[in-house]
Computed example of a mutant assay.
Amino acid sequence: MKIFLIAGARPNFMKIAPIARAFDKHSQINYKVVHTGQHYDKNMSDIFFEELGIRLPDYHLGAGGGTHAQQTAKIMTGFEEICEKDRPDLVIVVGDVNSTLACSIVAKKMYIKVAHVEAGLRSFDLSMPEEINRMVTDSISDLFFVTEEQGMTNLLKEGKILEKLHFVGHVMIDNLFYQLEKLKKMDTTCFPTTQFKQEHTQYGVVTLHRPSNVDDKENLEIIFETLSEISKTLPLIFPIHPRTRKNMEAFNIKIGANIKLTEPLSYMEFLNLWKDAKLALTDSGGLQEETTALGIPCLTIRENTERPITITQGTNELMGTSRKKILKSFDEIIGGNWKVGQKPQFWDGNAAERITALILR
């Protein structure tokens, strides 16, 4: 059985890595890793793949940036070429990036089966490009690997056949546990955030990159005013996205003295930072899930989430950009009154093994 594993950005590789490691245990699976090159990331060196426990990509499409249409077209063209010369039996896509959409469409038009990992997640917000990617990918996939029960419900409502839906848990959590074990054996003193951790017994972590937050001057000003207020009580560290930094400078936004800005961090550096944080303030989908897995309070600066289990069972709550709501929730966390949460079903580090067993069956 020949399988292509598709990844276009750093978080995608963290999702395919557990699957690749599981596939390595089965000689009857011949898989190849396809890197579409959707995002360039200087942290994705050979060491990055070594840390993930997977080999370097077999194919690199080098799609690069551009508009959504330009990028999607470049990925489709490049992926079609490799499918023509090295046709797989199955294409596995993960998440909701443009690579997910592009490679799914190419495969289906070439009569190659498609499996979607992280299927069924919905924010019901069509202003998010990721939501469109999720919906279109799920509309043409053959196999659906689902991370949470709401995903099953969403897919059934959309008319999917139950036999094709598989509630397996979350490969991102598989990778989180794998990396935590590796982190225990690492010398972290060389990490750029080590000094900050040594100086502060308690701190909060911030990530912010969504256009609705960082491209809107009023929203970004409100968010930073709120963060500055929080930092008077709890120091904050913020590995800042280039887009966010650019807009901060363009909008002339000032930050509190107790907010430390850093360059974007590698996965292991960032994991070493947030795993010990008092709380996370974020608009990232992945961090909502990972903080739930480790029981860390998370305040999500968004009006909606495609990951509702992080709220119903986990440690996450939606804040929007409401200064009042964020500060009230922060006071609850500092006062020890935040919900404890629980680890969702099948978020046990074995999702990739379940996926592999189902594919072999």
Rank of each mutant, 00 (worst) to 15 (best):
G64M: 08
I105F: 07
P308M: 01
E290S: 05
A22Q: 06
G349S: 02
S141N: 01
L236D: 09
N175D: 15
T77I: 15
F238I: 10
V91T: 04
A351R: 05
H26E: 15
E229V: 00
E249T: 13
K109W: 12
W347C: 06
H39F: 08
G204Y: 06
D331V: 03
A20H: 05
K85Q: 13
I255Y: 15
L5M: 11
K185V: 12
K85L: 07
K254Q: 15
L234R: 06
T201W: 02
G95N: 04
I29Y: 00
M248K: 03
F48N: 00
R302Y: 11
F167C: 09
K164E: 15
Y31L: 06
S266A: 11
T137R: 06
G66K: 02
L327I: 14
D41T: 01
E317G: 00
N30D: 15
F23P: 03
Y203H: 08
D41N: 13
S45A: 00
T147P: 14
C298G: 08
D276M: 07
D348R: 03
G66Q: 02
L101A: 08
P192T: 12
R87C: 12
I222F: 07
F4L: 07
F196H: 07
V91C: 06
R323Q: 13
N350S: 11
Y40N: 13
G65R: 02
K339L: 02
Q195I: 14
I47D: 11
R361P: 02
K109R: 15
A357E: 15
V117H: 05
P308N: 07
F145Q: 03
N247S: 12
F346C: 00
Y178D: 10
F124V: 00
T36C: 05
M110N: 15
R122F: 12
I173R: 01
Y40V: 14
D174Y: 10
G120P: 10
P129E: 06
T300G: 01
V114M: 06
S322H: 05
K113M: 04
H166Q: 11
Y178L: 02
E130I: 11
E149G: 11
D142Y: 09
F49M: 00
T188E: 12
E290N: 01
T77N: 13
T201E: 15
L61I: 10
Y59E: 00
I301S: 00
K85D: 05
E290L: 06
D348C: 04
D331R: 11
D24R: 07
T194I: 08
S228G: 03
G314A: 09
D89L: 02
K324D: 15
K74T: 09
L279K: 05
T233A: 08
R307D: 09
G64K: 11
F330G: 01
Q71K: 10
R354E: 09
M186D: 10
Y59S: 00
I161D: 15
K25I: 04
S127Q: 11
E131R: 08
